[in-house]
């Protein structure tokens, strides 16, 4: 007799208790945001826009050099947000998301706490939903930290003014802030695909470090494939290809169709990874 027969209760609906799901979610978020490692990562993220801002304040960059938008920061602090996100998108943000997503299930399995988690009166599917929401909450927090620190630091160091769009048109600060919110929302959605990938990898192993490394590896592999010109046919479907697509929100006429289709791709990745994670967790032998 294999152990999975014993553990089949994943399919037996446990007795429902009111509010169990909400309590589980709150406890998950408290666990993630309370962990000193995760707080340290958020602090490092918040330093990114601050460092760029101070560097630009100390030495004004020459036009055209360095990351995009760098030259515009001195004229308008709002561009600090876009510079920080452009800098953070290929490495910092995926790293942070990868650590938390990779750790979410594997970490508990490794510590042996996953079996206790599965004894709470919610189904494994709901445990996965809570895990997903927890990772998503952290992802959103991470992006918001960069965005808000960018606005704060940019505003204090350079002041916020009317925004010159990529097309050379100028819009009011209010319109600019609205677009900034859109940029932040897009980045959160863009990272969701990777976060879901991390969750799936996390259900495969009890070694949290391996899951984190694999998750970051997914992003790196996608970035590498994106840099090979011979694979250009594949590029539009790569996880990371449209990560910087938020530039669309900074054009005079925003192509919402393009933004929606890129977001759709990230959500499609998330759907596939999450269903894989669900299948894996539902059939997993939790012995450790």
């Amino acid at each position: 007799m294999s152990s999975s027969d014993v553990l089949a209760p994943a399919f037996v609906a446990p007795t429902r208790y009111r509010g169990a799901f909400g309590r589980l979610y709150r406890s998950e978020v408290r666990l993630i945001l309370g962990r000193r490692r995760n707080v340290a990562m958020l602090v490092v993220l918040s330093i990114v826009p601050l460092l760029i801002g101070i560097a630009v304040k100390v030495s004004t960059p020459r036009g055209g050099d360095g990351p995009q938008f760098l030259g515009q920061i001195t004229g308008n602090g709002l561009f600090l947000v876009f510079t920080a996100l452009t800098v953070g998108m290929p490495l910092f943000l995926p790293l942070v998301v990868g650590v938390v997503a990779g750790d979410s299930v594997a970490g508990e399995a490794g510590l042996g706490t996953l079996r206790y988690l599965l004894t709470v009166p919610v189904t494994r599917s709901r445990v996965l939903i809570v895990k997903t929401l927890g990772v998503l909450t952290f992802t959103a927090t991470a992006v918001l930290v960069v965005g808000l620190m960018g606005i704060l630091a940019g505003g204090i160091l350079f002041g916020l003014h009317d925004v010159t769009l990529l097309s050379g048109d100028t819009v009011s600060l209010g319109n600019g802030l609205l677009r900034t919110l859109g940029v932040i929302a897009y980045v959160i959605v863009a990272l969701f695909g990777l976060a879901a990938g991390g969750l799936f990898v996390s259900t495969l192993t009890e070694n949290a470090i391996a899951a984190m490394a694999t998750t970051v590896g997914i992003a790196v592999l996608s970035l590498l494939l994106d840099a090979v010109p011979q694979l250009s046919g594949l590029h539009p479907y790569l996880l990371t290809h449209n990560w910087l697509g938020f530039g669309e929100l900074l054009r005079g006429q925003v192509d919402t169709g393009a933004l929606l289709s890129w977001s759709g791709l990230h959500l499609a990745y998330a759907a596939v990874f999450l269903s894989l994670a669900w299948a894996r967790l539902s059939t997993k032998d939790v012995t450790g």
Partner: peptide, 29 residues
């Protein structure tokens, strides 16, 4: 005409007697 880069754009605008060009990466008009 707006030539698109992922985070950049180069525009050429013709309106009547005026012809403008703008490059976002250098902010030159």
């Amino acid at each position: 005409i707006a030539l698109l880069g992922q985070l950049s754009e180069a525009d050429a605008v013709h309106n009547g007697n005026d012809l403008w060009t703008y490059t976002s990466s250098t902010q030159q008009v």
